[in-house]
Write a protein that binds this DNA or RNA. Structure first.
Lengths: 340, 340
DNA sequence: TTTAGCACTCAAAGTAAACGAGTGCTAACA
DNA sequence: TGTTAGCACTCGTTTACTTTGAGTGCTAAA
């Protein structure tokens, strides 16, 4: 168990390192107002803290930097909740006063604000498309050979795919088919669409003419094609401004990791509600081992959950980040609540 | 006017520099098979070429590098058309054998391929949305307060916007309105939509009930909101692999430039058909002064033109790039031709 | 006109010294 | 017994100096 004094010193070290990115020495600690004892005492305490694994040296005669264990402890126990500045709160509030009706618009803007206010990289995961339910299916014939199928979900999400129309199929045939599909599929979760289309509707349509069948085959192929959940990334280039990423190789591999959309999505999806931090090696990807990833969830309607995340170096202003993400996720949630 | 020998030397210098990124010295030139005379002779010729402005020194005793004028001359007069490798052609061909029906899909894939094959950054500008014509307008009511308006254009492009529905307006009112709008607006170029909505349709609807009027106001607001032409960027991080961008400041400002979508779009849009190169200062943006931008157009249907572009350092493999972009733009054009 | 030769230039790589911010340890002190 | 002043030591960083080598321009001879 750490003593009061050790806690104090650990806090000072981490706070200092977070702002300066430089190893913190005993003398500079002892000069702090909050520290009433000498640098020699600090050194003794630091030796203990190091032995306990909370801080490290970069070389034998350097000051100390927080270890991952140190950050973890800091986040779990030492974090003083920070009041956001008037300006920060204002920026977010202003952004959300514009009447926004589009999910994408809100998310894009949120990602932008988050990365702008933090100078880190923001990643926002939309809610699972497949959990939403079909509101309406529409087909717009473009010309003899092709048409566009448009899916609208109960959440207002719109997807569209072009597909081929066999020449034997008339547009009135198409229309009839759409009517049948709509009557059968309204309210069906998208995730079940595939199955329903094969099992129930296929037979139903076979009972009608051959034309339906042909058109249906194409339409089905278009609808079944799955659309991965989208990832919105903001401030990707902010990474370049962090001193820990002056090594281009690191930047490159980090970018490569972020851009693996499906894996990133899986990672973000794995979180449940609330705010969570992954520090350094707590992240599953090699390229993120000197990064921290803060994730928070937002709600879209009742049971649909999306995730906002912030990626930066382990040396992050955790308390400010927490506050910001909290505020932002609340704004997002309440914006969406208005819709559904 | 340059002599044969000067042309030869200039060509060797540029070819060499393009592959090595290192200043080229007289000795290494004289060792080339194509060069039958001594390094001293080469030095004399190089002095002349430098005086003429085609090559430069990085410092007083360095080898030569091509100047922008040199590159320009090279591109205009010295470019030996390059046969693409079997593999390159294959990669492109394979990508286009998949049946693709969506404009976005084709463009995304093209941007991906281009940046992958070149290790540069590709930028693709979609054709002007506003030149396309309205095929159909659809409205899907979501709940009491909101609905989604969906525009489908003759090119198969789909846009959608959510809008508020005043509570007095019933969904059958909406339906009627859509019918009126569709009958009046089908075939109208999107660019004129705004005007038509105000001038003609407004009056028409006013002639009907007040309900229409209210709903219409919201719908109009949603439709009029303009959607900027989209820019698809591929391989943004490839920039980091170029030795000329080991300076992070440069990378950062280049990214900042690329991300100004509207300005980039204007730049790309300004080109007419065919392939064009902007070398160094021929680019309008400061951050691109040591870059070259190659642009080529593709056609979507008959009169709609989009642009594919490739951004790299001035030291680019121009001949390979030309060939690649040629092949790619042809593939894109022919894919699209099939659709419309 | 070409080329061998040579003095000269300058970035880059290597070496050495000085610096200084930091440490751990010891001994004296309250 | 905990705290602190003092001191020797460590090691990364900076600076200044040297060496190296790839390159040049110029001159004079072929």
């Amino acid at each position: 168990m750490l003593t009061e004094r050790q806690l104090l010193i650990l806090q000072v070290i981490i706070d200092d390192f977070i702002t300066t990115a430089q190893p913190v020495g005993s003398r500079s600690i002892s000069k702090k107002d909050a520290i009433t004892f000498s640098s020699a005492t600090v050194r003794n305490e630091m030796a203990d803290l190091e032995e306990l694994g909370f801080i490290e040296k970069t070389h034998s005669s350097s000051g100390r930097i927080p270890s991952e264990k140190g950050y973890r402890f800091y986040v779990d126990h030492l974090l003083s909740p920070l009041r956001l500045s008037q300006q920060e709160v204002g920026t977010i509030r202003d952004a959300f006063t514009d009447k926004m009706m589009e999910f994408e618009q809100v998310v894009q803007k949120s990602a932008g604000i988050l990365s702008e206010l933090t100078n880190y990289t923001s990643i926002i995961l939309g809610p699972e498309v497949f959990e939403t339910k079909l509101k309406q299916l529409q087909i717009v014939p473009l010309n003899q050979q092709s048409a566009i199928a448009i899916l609208v979900t109960n959440t207002g999400h719109v997807e569209h795919r072009a597909f081929n129309v066999p020449s034997e199929v008339s547009s009135s045939d198409l229309e009839k088919m759409v009517n049948i599909l709509n009557s059968r599929l309204q309210g069906v979760p998208l995730i079940q669409l595939h199955e329903k289309l094969y099992k129930e509707i296929g037979d139903l349509l076979k009972a009608h003419t051959e034309q339906y069948d042909k058109a249906f085959a194409y339409l089905r192929a278009a609808l079944v094609e799955e659309q991965p959940t989208k990832l919105y990334i903001g401030g990707k280039t902010n990474i370049l401004m962090q001193p820990e990423f002056k090594d281009l190789d690191k930047v490159r591999s980090l970018y490569a990791t972020i851009e693996k959309e499906s894996e990133m999505a899986d990672l973000l999806r794995s979180d449940d509600e609330g705010i969570r931090v992954r520090i350094g090696h707590e992240n599953p990807f090699d390229a993120m081992q000197n990064c921290s990833l803060i994730t928070a969830s937002y709600r879209l309607g009742n049971d649909q959950i999306g995730t906002i995340a912030l990626l930066g170096p382990t040396r992050m202003e955790y308390n400010r980040m927490f506050s910001l993400m909290n505020v932002l996720s609340k704004h997002m949630t309440s914006t969406f609540r208005g819709w559904y």
